[in-house]
Design a protein around this nucleic acid. Structure first.
Lengths: 342, 342
DNA sequence: TTGAAAGCGCTACCAC
DNA sequence: GTGGTAGCGCTTTCAA
């Protein structure tokens, strides 16, 4: 390792020397302590500015045991191939970052891959973030549950799980799954397949909603049918292709996410069939892409921006010691052309 | 501020006590130093694991003056309203994060808003990142130029500027702008308007390429015409609407980015005109959305993933002391329906 | 109101 | 190979 090129090696003691005071006074002055004389404060602030001095955050964090940083963790237990560049994560992360930086905190991103032994403990011990946001429980419900008891400032984007005691934000996934399936039923579809990975609570809940809709239907409907699919673009594409090639007849796909749905459309089209003519498709999330697929995607909207805002709001209230409850953000069916029905 | 709930207060000296050795030995053992006896090393590693011990990165950074962290900065001098959630940033950031985490480094995201006095110095002094990636020069060419002389591990996504000495990665923007304009000319369009904000070097270069194409054309073409546009969705939409309402006739739009192009399409359609019938549209970037607009967007493709990979590769070579040159990633016209011409 | 001194947790130098 | 020790840059208690 070559020696570090550090442009700014100015430290607090340098400022102190120039100002002719002790370091502790500089520290207080820069922190805006009322103890320090106003004239002295101004003088110190001036010197600091003209020297381009900024406190070293590592030293500050070490001393304060507080880092002014929020860690955003993305556990990919169910799906280690899924890249951070997945549009849903990336869209969600962007909104979270907007909200966090606006409050003067830094944002640290961490991708958690299996094996994930004690990842949460390690994340906290190592980075000492002031709060943690987890996007998707993945298969980590237990780990999160255990940690949430000891570490308060923790908010999770995901599905509500029975007897869960940590704070989640998410849409009502059962309701959303039901909305999607009921819409397809109302459009006259009878062989509706759910495509997704039910190892993650969110998707399992959506699947449950879908099942409920089918089972409560008075029409003569094919039994619920689950086609497992990876969440990557290629994985979803392949899953749908083999589904179509398989012997299970279908006239509609209820996808666990928009990414799966968008790739389902591609797979169906590439097979020579039409959407929604032969097979109708409904997604979930309403990411930016959904409005622009061809045909545009009917989907269950979760307002990601509002979700992000809610998560950050709850997180900061927890940092302040409040024991916030979970929040559910509204869910809404957005009807576009892919379901072939007004 | 309520007292911090810290689940893991175990430190190195605790491990040392349990193992019956000195802290320095633990430090060496955990760092995999060849000095420490193999049996001792294993014992210490075992204890550390079973205690869930992880080194405190603030302390480590302070001591080492090295943070195992890369800062990704997004200066928005030209466009303070542009959110971090802009699809281009977010897509680029996702790929960068993938590459960086894969190398065992942390990722820190920073949004830089005006007034940006000394922001680069401050970023370095405060966060002590081991390297910096800047997405887009925005209006900050001078600040970056000055810093690049003192701080080596710095790579910028953006346009190549005359006499620039820092390391950039980006497509050949002049060439790209020319490709777009030439394509429209080849399709028989004669009143082509460039829509974008030329305050950022990248977009200025694209505009130059566009001008060059028009000026070299032998046909009877309208003079180059620049319609300024914000990069936000709403800003671009409004800009194009007022362009159409204005007195300058046009039959094609050469957009500085896909976001502008996508919103141009929306604006044109909402005005009752058709794309590409009345007005052809060409974008720039080929973000994920481009393939899915209606009609699908003809655009100048920059391979963002390859760009990200290149940036991170160059950055780590710079961290190792190498003085890497700038890199240009290939540019390619992707013809879809929005330009109305095969 | 300011100064002195301790110490946050870690690594690296110097002895042995 | 291992132990002792100094010190990274900062904040905060305690004295003055």
């Amino acid at each position: 390792m070559p020696k570090k090129s550090t442009p700014s090696n100015i430290k607090m003691s340098d400022i102190a020397k120039i100002a002719g005071v002790h370091t502790s006074t500089v520290s207080r002055a820069l922190a805006g302590s009322p103890l320090v004389d106003e004239a002295v404060r101004k003088k110190i602030a001036g010197i600091a500015r003209s020297c381009g001095y900024v406190v070293n955050s590592a030293a500050r964090s070490l001393r304060l045991r507080r880092s002014q940083t929020i860690s955003v963790a993305i556990p990919l237990g169910h799906e280690s191939q899924q890249p951070l560049s997945d549009p849903f994560f990336v869209e969600m992360f962007g909104y979270l970052a907007d909200e966090i930086t606006q409050r003067g905190y830094g944002v640290h991103l961490q991708k958690i891959l299996p094996p994930m032994d004690r990842w949460l403990e390690n994340l906290i011990a190592s980075n000492q973030p002031d709060g943690i946001l987890i996007i998707g429980q993945s298969t980590e419900h237990k780990a999160i549950e255990a940690m949430a008891k000891k570490f308060l400032p923790l908010v999770v984007w995901g599905g509500q799980v029975a007897r869960q005691s940590y704070c989640t934000v998410g849409s009502d996934n059962i309701e959303g799954g039901r909305l999607a399936a009921e819409h397809l039923l109302a459009c006259g579809r009878q062989k509706i397949v759910f495509v997704g990975d039910t190892n993650a609570p969110e998707f399992l809940l959506r699947y449950k909603g879908y099942r409920a809709a089918l089972e409560h239907s008075s029409h003569d409907i094919e039994k619920p049918y689950l086609a497992s699919s990876h969440l990557t673009a290629d994985g979803a594409y392949a899953a749908v292709k083999s589904l179509i090639a398989g012997k299970h007849a279908l006239d509609a796909i209820c996808a666990a996410t928009d990414i799966i749905a968008a790739n389902a459309i591609r797979a169906i089209t590439d097979t020579g069939k039409t959407v929604p003519g032969d097979i109708a498709v409904v997604g979930y999330d309403d990411i930016a892409l959904a409005a622009h697929t061809n045909p545009p995607l009917t989907t269950v909207r979760q307002d990601i921006q509002q979700g992000a805002r809610t998560m950050v709001d709850l997180l900061f209230r927890r940092i302040d010691g409040e024991k916030t409850p979970s929040a559910i953000i509204p869910t809404q069916l957005v009807i576009r052309a892919s379901s072939g029905c007004p």
